[in-house]
Amino acid sequence: MKQIILVRHGKSSWEYDVSDKDRPLKQRGINDAHLVSKAFAQKAIHLDHCFSSSANRALHTSMIFTRNLGFNLDNFLISEKLYDFSGNSVREFVKDLDDNLETIMLFGHNYAFTTLANTWGDQYIDNVPTSGLVHIKFDVRQWAKIAKGSSETVIFPKHLKTK
């Protein structure tokens, strides 16, 4: 069985005159990433590997998650292929993964992650928000064969905030 946890980067700031890749997280993005990662940590799901887009906002989000999950950074990799907005590059990245990996976490971007959550999962999601997490299980043994799986967990910041 293969499992993917898709995490969209936290809310980023447009306050600085920097390239898209260099945009930092806003304080809300930092807070939401902590909130969602701590909620996901309660699920106690073992991760084999984590992969992040090279964009600053995705990397910062991934560091918050890995810290809160107590994840060993020896099993962490940054990939340019995850700096993708359509989903095509992410899909190819996943299909090329080592089949010895069972459960992975990806940190990346929209519209790629909403598209993939709907392509791979069985629960329609209008939009994966910033810091949103979607966990999908597949009843296959090879990454190249993933198609439709089951959406196991969906955690969005708004689910965790009290009004």
Rank of each mutant, 00 (worst) to 15 (best):
I64Y: 01
F113H: 06
Q42H: 00
F156T: 13
W143V: 11
G29W: 04
V134E: 04
I64H: 02
M63C: 03
V154M: 14
S53A: 09
L35P: 03
L59K: 04
F85P: 05
F65P: 01
M63V: 03
R8G: 12
E102N: 15
L116S: 08
M105G: 05
L133P: 10
W120P: 02
Q27C: 00
W120N: 02
I30T: 03
I5Q: 07
A41F: 02
H46A: 13
P129L: 07
P129G: 10
S89C: 07
L116Y: 08
D126Q: 09
W14G: 11
F113E: 04
F138R: 08
N88V: 09
M1L: 13
D99R: 00
N110L: 13
S13V: 03
A147Y: 05
K137N: 11
L101T: 09
F65R: 01
H60Q: 13
I104M: 10
A147F: 03
M1H: 15
D126V: 01
K163D: 07
K163V: 12
N68D: 08
T119M: 07
L101W: 14
R91H: 10
S19E: 11
N72G: 03
F51K: 05
A58P: 09
W143D: 13
D98P: 14
V140I: 10
T119P: 02
D22N: 12
R91D: 15
L59G: 01
W14Y: 12
K158V: 05
D122V: 08
Y124E: 09
N127G: 12
A39G: 07
I64P: 01
F71I: 03
N110Y: 09
K158G: 00
S150H: 15
N68R: 02
T66N: 06
H109N: 09
A117S: 15
F93Y: 13
S13G: 06
D96N: 14
D17I: 08
D96H: 11
G108V: 00
E80Y: 09
V128D: 10
I125E: 14
E80I: 11
F76V: 02
T114C: 08
R8E: 10
A144V: 11
H159L: 10
H34F: 04
D32P: 03
L133Q: 11
F138K: 07
G70P: 04
E80K: 14
H46I: 12
V90K: 02
D48V: 13
Q42P: 00
D96P: 02
G87S: 06
H46D: 14
G108S: 02
E92G: 14
S131N: 08
S53Q: 10
F51Q: 07
S150G: 15
Q123T: 12
F71Y: 04
S79K: 12
I5C: 15
D48F: 13
N110T: 12
D139S: 14
N88H: 12
D96V: 00
V36Y: 01
S79M: 11
A117D: 04
G132M: 04
D22Q: 14
G70H: 01
Q123V: 13
V18Y: 11
K163H: 10
